[in-house]
């Protein structure tokens, strides 16, 4: 299964992948067992001449326990899965750790807009800087995001980070991730959002802290002004 998943590049990816494998193992065993019994019965109890079927209506509790006991075991496994999964969900979606960077992500038909806090380090002030389609983040740092949408519902999905969160117009949803590998990954929209849903994508560049701060500087208004025009065009 690990081979089918894309490479893992966030701090919680291992937890989520591990849980996926854990659940697959449990239900896989049950699945094979149930199929084996089902198909086994269908083969083993084929009609034979002169042999009558057994009269087993399963009315008594004792008889029904053949079905109910396995179901109680199923329930037990269910609760184990819930018990293992709940803290992982809490870690990913509820407990946002102290963040190093913050960014506002706005989904629009059909692009991703990223708002950097500007020199004052705070979102919502005049010096915020908008960047379209390409977000750089430093590796090994907790990035907090405020996710919203301008028009319809979109969904922020970066497969390698195991990150997915719907973007809802009128709401700001907070979330976080910590990238553990450098590289360039696609940001896609996982919720159908109209005509351009199929071409909606952005780029997330995860890089060293130095490269990241260079990128941030290049996006600041004064930096942009000081860069010669021809260089800006190349960028």
């Amino acid at each position: 299964m690990e081979n089918w998943l894309p490479e893992a590049a966030s701090s919680y990816a291992a937890d989520l992948d591990g849980l996926l494998i854990f659940i697959s193992a449990i239900v896989g065993v049950w699945f094979i067992l149930a199929e084996a019994v089902l198909i086994g019965f269908a083969v083993a109890f084929r009609r034979k001449p002169g042999q009558k079927a057994a009269y087993l209506p399963g009315r008594s509790l004792r008889a029904m326990s053949w079905v109910l006991v396995p179901c109680v075991v199923v329930l037990g496994f269910d609760l184990v899965i819930d018990g293992v999964a709940a803290p992982i969900w809490d870690k990913v979606k509820i407990e946002i750790p102290e963040s190093d960077e913050i960014v506002r992500i706005t989904a629009v038909q059909w692009a991703w807009k990223f708002t950097l806090p500007g020199p004052d380090g705070e979102l919502g002030s005049d010096d915020d800087v908008d960047v379209m389609s390409e977000l750089h983040v430093p590796v090994g740092k907790v990035v907090e995001f405020e996710l919203t949408a301008n028009d319809v519902i979109h969904s922020l999905f970066v497969p390698q980070l195991r990150l997915k969160q719907d973007a809802i117009p009128g709401r700001v949803i907070k979330g976080w991730f910590e990238a553990t590998k450098t590289g360039t990954f696609e940001i896609v929209c996982a919720e159908i959002c109209g005509l351009g849903h199929t071409i909606m994508k952005g780029k997330m560049v995860i890089e060293s802290e130095e490269a990241y701060s260079d990128w941030v500087k290049s996006k600041m208004p004064e930096a942009a002004a000081s860069i010669p025009a021809e260089e800006r065009n190349e960028g």
Binding site: I88, R162, L163
Partner: peptide
């Protein structure tokens, strides 16, 4: 399971 649903 909510946690695995994030990715899937």
């Amino acid at each position: 399971t909510a946690a695995t649903d994030i990715y899937l």
